[in-house]
Lab assay of single mutants.
Amino acid sequence: MSGIALSRLAQERKAWRKDHPFGFVAVPTKNPDGTMNLMNWECAIPGKKGTPWEGGLFKLRMLFKDDYPSSPPKCKFEPPLFHPNVYPSGTVCLSILEEDKDWRPAITIKQILLGIQELLNEPNIQDPAQAEAYTIYCQNRVEYEKRVRAQAKKFAPS
């Protein structure tokens, strides 16, 4: 494992614990031996107030490669969400998460999670990743928002 990646992720964890947006979660997972795995984080993004996503808490896994922060983490909703920019596998399609697009090593975990929260309610229809959600979003916004509200209710924190 890269010392650069681990040191950056340790800084990220410290900064997150000191200050993070209300309702968001970002925690490194534990290895079988109980030690912390900084390369694999369990996160959760709350649906934004005043949107059909409100009330939901959407679980996301963030996986970092050894060359982080040169390369972005892979962000994957578990379980996958109904959304035009979420692949059926759950992987998020967002330009700041793509090395050859808008990724920059200075982007923080907090910025990534806030960017994904923004994307939930403002899909990028130029870059669809899920045919069904994309089609319904474009053709029947009322039905799309109904499905999103049902999903938010399903993923409401207990």
Score class of each variant (00 low, 15 high):
residue 25 V to I: 15
residue 99 E to S: 11
residue 98 E to F: 08
residue 118 E to W: 08
residue 80 P to I: 07
residue 44 A to Y: 15
residue 39 M to Q: 02
residue 79 P to R: 15
residue 11 Q to H: 12
residue 128 P to L: 00
residue 125 I to H: 03
residue 104 R to C: 11
residue 30 K to N: 06
residue 141 R to P: 13
residue 9 L to Y: 13
residue 30 K to F: 07
residue 97 L to E: 05
residue 125 I to S: 09
residue 70 S to E: 09
residue 44 A to S: 08
residue 112 I to T: 15
residue 38 L to D: 01
residue 96 I to F: 04
residue 79 P to Q: 13
residue 84 P to Y: 02
residue 59 K to N: 12
residue 149 R to L: 09
residue 110 K to Q: 08
residue 69 P to W: 06
residue 32 P to F: 06
residue 80 P to M: 13
residue 36 M to S: 05
residue 57 L to N: 09
residue 110 K to S: 07
residue 114 L to G: 12
residue 11 Q to L: 13
residue 49 K to S: 04
residue 133 A to G: 07
residue 14 K to G: 03
residue 53 W to N: 08
residue 144 Y to D: 09
residue 31 N to T: 08
residue 151 Q to N: 07
residue 15 A to R: 11
residue 64 F to A: 03
residue 78 E to Q: 11
residue 67 D to Y: 06
residue 34 G to S: 06
residue 36 M to G: 04
residue 92 V to S: 09
residue 143 E to M: 12
residue 113 L to Q: 06
residue 62 M to I: 10
residue 75 C to A: 10
residue 76 K to E: 15
residue 87 Y to Q: 05
residue 149 R to P: 05
residue 124 N to V: 03
residue 24 F to R: 02
residue 36 M to A: 03
residue 44 A to C: 04
residue 60 L to P: 02
residue 154 K to Q: 13
residue 33 D to Q: 03
residue 23 G to I: 03
residue 133 A to S: 11
residue 5 A to L: 09
residue 49 K to Q: 10
residue 115 G to C: 06
residue 136 I to R: 06
residue 22 F to N: 04
residue 149 R to S: 10
residue 97 L to S: 09
residue 91 T to M: 10
residue 110 K to V: 10
residue 61 R to W: 08
residue 128 P to S: 13
residue 122 E to Y: 11
residue 57 L to F: 08
residue 14 K to R: 15
residue 149 R to Q: 13
residue 29 T to P: 04
residue 4 I to V: 08
residue 3 G to E: 12
residue 75 C to D: 04
residue 64 F to M: 15
residue 82 F to A: 04
residue 130 Q to H: 11
residue 43 C to S: 10
residue 50 G to I: 05
residue 122 E to P: 02
residue 63 L to P: 01
residue 158 S to T: 13
residue 30 K to M: 09
residue 66 D to L: 12
residue 63 L to F: 13
residue 33 D to E: 07
residue 23 G to T: 01
residue 106 A to S: 14
residue 96 I to P: 01
residue 34 G to Q: 13
residue 73 P to Y: 03
residue 10 A to G: 08
residue 113 L to T: 11
residue 53 W to Q: 03
residue 25 V to N: 04
residue 139 Q to F: 07
residue 97 L to H: 11
residue 4 I to F: 08
residue 30 K to D: 06
residue 134 Y to R: 00
residue 118 E to I: 10
residue 133 A to D: 03
residue 102 D to F: 08
residue 102 D to M: 12
residue 95 S to C: 06
residue 142 V to W: 10
residue 121 N to T: 12
residue 71 S to I: 08
residue 74 K to N: 15
residue 118 E to G: 10
residue 126 Q to D: 10
residue 148 V to S: 03
residue 140 N to A: 15
residue 18 K to G: 07
residue 131 A to V: 13
residue 69 P to I: 01
residue 76 K to F: 15
residue 115 G to E: 04
residue 99 E to R: 10
residue 21 P to T: 02
residue 43 C to G: 11
residue 52 P to V: 08
residue 136 I to G: 02
residue 113 L to W: 04
residue 26 A to Q: 04
residue 52 P to R: 09
residue 98 E to A: 15
residue 22 F to W: 04
residue 148 V to Q: 02
residue 98 E to S: 15
residue 53 W to G: 00
residue 81 L to H: 00
residue 145 E to R: 14
residue 66 D to T: 12
residue 71 S to W: 14
residue 12 E to S: 04
residue 2 S to P: 10
residue 2 S to R: 04
residue 101 K to W: 08
residue 88 P to Q: 15
residue 79 P to K: 14
residue 84 P to S: 01
residue 78 E to D: 12
residue 55 G to L: 10
residue 68 Y to P: 03
residue 158 S to G: 06
residue 136 I to V: 09
residue 33 D to I: 03
residue 105 P to S: 11
residue 33 D to G: 03
residue 67 D to W: 06
residue 31 N to V: 06
residue 118 E to N: 12
residue 18 K to W: 02
residue 20 H to A: 00
residue 38 L to I: 10
residue 66 D to E: 12
residue 19 D to T: 15
residue 32 P to A: 13
residue 102 D to S: 14
residue 134 Y to F: 08
residue 103 W to M: 05
residue 76 K to L: 14
residue 20 H to V: 00
residue 147 R to G: 04
residue 6 L to N: 13
residue 114 L to R: 09
residue 112 I to S: 07
residue 111 Q to N: 13
residue 115 G to D: 01
residue 131 A to K: 10
residue 116 I to T: 13
residue 16 W to K: 05
residue 139 Q to N: 11
residue 138 C to A: 15
residue 85 N to A: 08
residue 49 K to H: 14
residue 133 A to P: 11
residue 147 R to F: 03
residue 6 L to F: 10
residue 34 G to D: 10
